[in-house]
């Protein structure tokens, strides 16, 4: 395997306002020009991971890691100046809420060009128009002089992506880039992101709560639960033959067009569980005594890494008990 573009080892994050860790020692790698997705529900630490890698949590959380290597350099030791340069030129960032991410009272172009020196701006402006057209904004030359509030949510998010691409990044960090948008707009934006990725040779870290979104563009997927990685592997393998009960839960709980109607969707209840065992023991339908006493380690099974004591039985057990565990409350 070639050297990874980004390699994270034992990342731990604890918010200053909280006692528990939001991210509990996770490791993963992103190869150049590939897309890695982090999937999980809110509170699983997926967005925190993305923000920690971009070093955007400086004032609000303690971040620890053995290393965060980006292009062979450890970003943990980078100075403020180096970080700014990194964010401007090597890493692009797109956030979830298009409205909250913009300053509504400044023009689109002005905001996106702020990060660059005055002398560079005219040239960058041309480039920005080019990128805006590329991400599907018609009349980009006019939109660049409009205020964000004049644009729809989808347009704001497109402009944000154009801005993130402006410095010719090699890595794009996208934190739930489509969750706040309509299904139809989501589909278009996802398609766009994967096109751009191929064209620009861009690597991507995509954070989402929706496996359906992820399945469309990510090569590899990391599934997080409660600050830990529970499963990791190639996306299609992960979806088609999940070995962790939580991944199964995520896939089955999605309302899909080919499900029987008016039948309860797949969910499972929350119980109390001991803090020593598996993080998912509090919701897992397959829990056995060892799950509460011993934490399962991530281990390579076939193509995927799984942290589950019963990984070999998951497929069989969950299919057999399909009907009986579908009750909610």
């Amino acid at each position: 395997m070639s050297t990874p573009l980004l390699s994270v080892k034992n990342l731990e994050v604890r918010y200053l306002s909280a006692t528990a860790k939001a991210v509990k020692g996770i490791s993963f790698e992103i190869q150049p020009a590939t897309c890695l997705a982090i999937v999980g529900e809110s509170g699983s630490g997926k967005s925190t991971t993305a923000l920690a890698i971009a070093r955007l949590l400086e004032n609000s959380a303690n971040t620890k890691a053995s290393e965060i290597l980006f292009e062979g350099k450890n970003i943990l030791n980078a100075s403020k100046k180096e970080l700014r340069k990194l964010r401007r030129e090597r890493i692009g960032i797109v956030f979830q809420d298009p409205i909250a991410s913009w300053n509504l009272s400044r023009k689109v172009g002005t905001q996106l060009l702020d990060a660059f020196d005055k002398s560079e701006r005219p040239e960058r402006r041309e480039k920005l128009i080019h990128f805006m057209e590329k991400v599907g904004i018609d009349k980009a030359a006019q939109v660049i002089d409009m205020y964000p509030y004049m644009l729809s949510g989808g347009m704001m998010q497109r402009a944000m992506i154009a801005g993130a691409l402006l410095g010719n990044p090699v890595l794009l960090i996208a934190d739930e880039p489509t969750s706040a948008l309509d299904v139809t707009v989501q589909a278009d934006l996802l398609h766009l992101l994967s096109e751009l990725r191929k064209e620009q040779g861009l690597a991507m870290l995509l954070v989402s709560h929706n496996l359906a979104v992820v399945s469309q563009i990510a090569e590899r997927t990391v599934v997080m639960y409660s600050g830990e990685i529970v499963e990791e592997g190639p996306t299609s393998t992960l979806i088609n033959s999940s070995k962790h009960p939580y991944t199964v839960n995520l896939i089955r709980s999605m309302p899909a067009m080919d499900q029987p109607r008016k039948v309860n969707l797949y969910t499972n209840e929350v119980r109390n569980a001991s803090s020593e065992g598996c993080v998912y023991a509090n919701r897992c339908p397959l829990v056995i005594p060892i799950c509460n006493s011993q934490k399962p380690e991530l281990q390579l099974i076939g193509e995927t890494n799984v942290a589950c004591h019963r990984h070999s039985e998951v497929k069989k057990l969950l299919e057999v008990s399909n009907g009986s565990i579908t009750s909610d409350s």
Binding site: E41, S42, H209, N210, L250, P255, K262, V263, Y266, D328
Partner: peptide, 15 residues
Amino acid sequence: LDVSVQAQIVNLFLD
């Protein structure tokens, strides 16, 4: 809501 929570709420509506 999150996808897995969506499922719970949809179930609740069904019930």
